[in-house]
Amino acid sequence: MHEILNVNGLSAGYGPLRVIHDLDLTIKAGERVGLVGLNGHGKTTLFYAIAGLTGWQRGSIVFNGREVGGTRSQGPGRYTHLIVRQGLALMPQADELFHGLTVEEHLDSGAFTKTAWKTRKQRKERVLELFAPLRDRLKTPVSRLSGGERRMVSIGRGLMVDAKLYLSDEPSLGLAPKIGIGVMEALLKIDLSGSAMIIAEQNVALLEGRVDRVIGMHAGKLKGEASLASSIKRRKA
C-alpha cells in the first residue's frame, strides 16, 4: 500500500520550548495506528505539527505525496487550511468547538471544503448514523451539550470530509468509561480504504488488539512499536 504520511526528522515546538525531537514516522494507507504516551510527551504537538499549528517546526512531512512540512518559525495556522484541504481531518483534544454554533452548523463547518459542501446532507446523515444521540440535538447550541455529546460533535465534524488521514487526539479523555468505549468504537468502525487513522490515547486497554499498530511516544520521540500480532499475543497470554 502507498504511504499516506511520511514524517522525516521532524522537530517542533513553541517559542523556546522544543517538544518533538527528530522524529520519523511512516503511515500507510489502510492503517489504523494507536499512539500511546503520557501527558506532555508530544502526542498533541505531533498532530499539530502535521497540521502546521505549532509555533515552529523543522523537518519534512510528506502528506499524500506532497511536502507540507519544512522549516517554519512563525505563523502557526497559516497553511493549516491548505493542509486540511489536502485531506486531513484533525479531531483535536478538548474538542475545540464553536460555543455558539448549533450541532448542525458544526457538522456543516466540518464539510467546509468545496467538494464536501455540496454533499453535506448525505455526509451529515452518515455521521448521525454513527452518533445517533445527536439526531435530536441538531438545533441545539453546543454550549448546552454534555461532555460526551460534545466529543461526538467534535469527532463527527472531523468525519464530515473524506479525509486521507484522520488524527484523533485522546477521544476518550474526560468521558465516562462507557461513553469513552462508545466513541472509540465509532472511530474503529470508520472504513479506511485508501486512508489512514492515528488515534492518540493514554488508555491502552481501549486500543489493544483493535488497531494495526501501537506506537509509544516518550519525551518527544517514538519509543518502540507493537504490531497487531504481538498485541493480540499479549492479550491471550
Binding site: G77, T80, V84, F98, F112
Partner: peptide, 25 residues
C-alpha cells in the same frame, strides 16, 4: 451562507476554524 458560517466560526474559535479548513487571510 457558507461565508457567513466561516466568519461566525472565526468569531467563536479562530484556532478551531483553521482546523476545519477556514483560511484566515
Amino acid at each position: 451562507s457558507r461565508r457567513g458560517l466561516e466568519i461566525r466560526a472565526m468569531m467563536m474559535n479562530p484556532h478551531a476554524a483553521s482546523i476545519v479548513g477556514i483560511g484566515i487571510r
